[in-house]
Design a protein around this nucleic acid. Structure first.
Lengths: 234, 234
DNA sequence: CGCGACGTTGAGATTCGTCAATGATAGTGG
DNA sequence: CCACTATCATTGACGAATCTCAACGTCGCG
């Protein structure tokens, strides 16, 4: 599938391109590569060649220290671009792993830089994309700055729900693609605490919960609750 | 003072420029503006016009939520560039405040984009600069992902010491320019805990400590200790 | 149907935050 | 130059939140 036909183009890198400049962009991209669940999109330490744009599915990125300690640093959904953190060092500083069977477009960075140099609009889009990633990171820093487990879990749910709504406006039911362990690692709390907080939300009537299936009862009220307690959106 | 004479050029945005392209860059930069301690370099919500490069002194960035809750998100030292997180939104999402009397160069972003479009090297430097900022954010996320206060304080000290050593290779004595409150906010722990952890390090003989003056006794051993316990450097 | 991975729940131990009092430091004005 | 004051930093006691360890459920896949 070409970018011009992609549902998520307006959220993706070629958002502002059209006509011949879009064709040129499509020309350098390896579109729609398939990745299976658990498969790596890139690995920590390997040479940086490409950015990757999610077309369908979901991805986690994780970093492993020399000590062996591993931490999940982000979850990504369609329209989002991963690999930006490799630009400085020419190596991927982390590993990206598909959380489910996913379709992902590979954007060779050297080519991208070349054509961006000739297309101011693309260059700007790239800057904006990176800027957006900063804002995302800042939100996350905020989230982790507080120590309250409930806030962390709420922010996580809220973030996932928001993105789910953009992708599936018709369906309230959302299915988490990541394990409790992944969530815990991402939020910097123990997996037991994640489980307990989710159970608490369920008991208090905020949502239905069965394994990885989540249904938020009154999204508007829920959002208000999150906002009061834990809105880390800048 | 011009970039060509600046000690920190190789760490700064024009690192790879020379000759006429460097002159052109210098031409658009407002060099060496003075900011007093506590003075704002830019404010949250105001229009994004420029990036700022620290020439001397130090800066903190902080974000304030609608609830009024404020959090310090980074400390910056000479050679480092701030304001990158505003590129996406055209507003500064946070506030930057000088921690001491500082000299800072203003880089109007519209001009920068223009000349970067003609100078691939500068464009690449800008990408790299942003990439470096991602790595920094990731490191911080990693740090905050762990809950141990000792690790957080150690990582903070280690980060400051590393930058201090680059700037002042001859002196081991470092003077923190930020308050305990700022450190606590940045690390996501209470200021009392910061104080207690620092005192603990002092009692265990790792460093000398008097107010904001810190002297790390055996930097090599200290680094090893940090590495074992808390190395979040990716 | 059984096994293994994933998720939930419970109890005790630990860490850290909060509140509060005390001590040090720097900036201000007499 | 010194005293005064406001801000900043340290220290202690207590309680709450979360981690760890452990047992028990549950789900999906072969």
């Amino acid at each position: 599938m070409k970018c011009s036909d992609c549902k998520w183009r307006k959220y993706c890198l070629p958002s502002d391109l059209s006509g011949p400049s879009l064709s040129e962009f499509e020309h350098i991209v390896h579109l729609g590569k398939k990745f299976e669940k658990e498969q790596r999109i890139y690995s920590q330490g390997s040479s940086f060649r490409s950015l990757f744009a999610i077309q369908s599915g979901s991805v986690k990125t994780q970093y492993t220290l020399t000590s062996g300690y591993t931490q999940v640093t982000a979850f990504y959904y369609p329209g989002e671009v991963i690999g930006l953190d490799a630009i400085d060092t020419d190596k991927y500083p982390g590993t990206a792993i598909a959380l489910e069977d996913s379709i992902i477009c590979e954007i060779p960075f050297a080519h991208l830089e070349q054509i961006a140099q000739q297309q101011p609009i693309l260059n700007q889009s790239l800057f904006k994309l990176m800027g957006r990633e900063f804002v995302r990171d800042q939100s996350l820093l905020f989230l982790l700055g507080s120590r309250a487990a409930e806030e962390r879990v709420l922010s996580f749910l809220s973030s996932i729900a928001k993105r789910h709504t953009i992708m599936n406006p018709e369906s309230q039911q959302l299915q988490l693609s990541m394990s409790r362990t992944d969530i815990a690692s991402f939020l910097g709390i123990s997996l037991e605490t994640v489980s307990r907080e989710l159970t608490k939300l369920k008991k208090n009537g905020w949502l239905e919960l069965s394994g990885r299936n989540v249904l938020i009862h009154q999204p508007a009220n829920f959002k208000e609750y999150v906002f009061q307690l834990a809105d880390k959106t800048i």
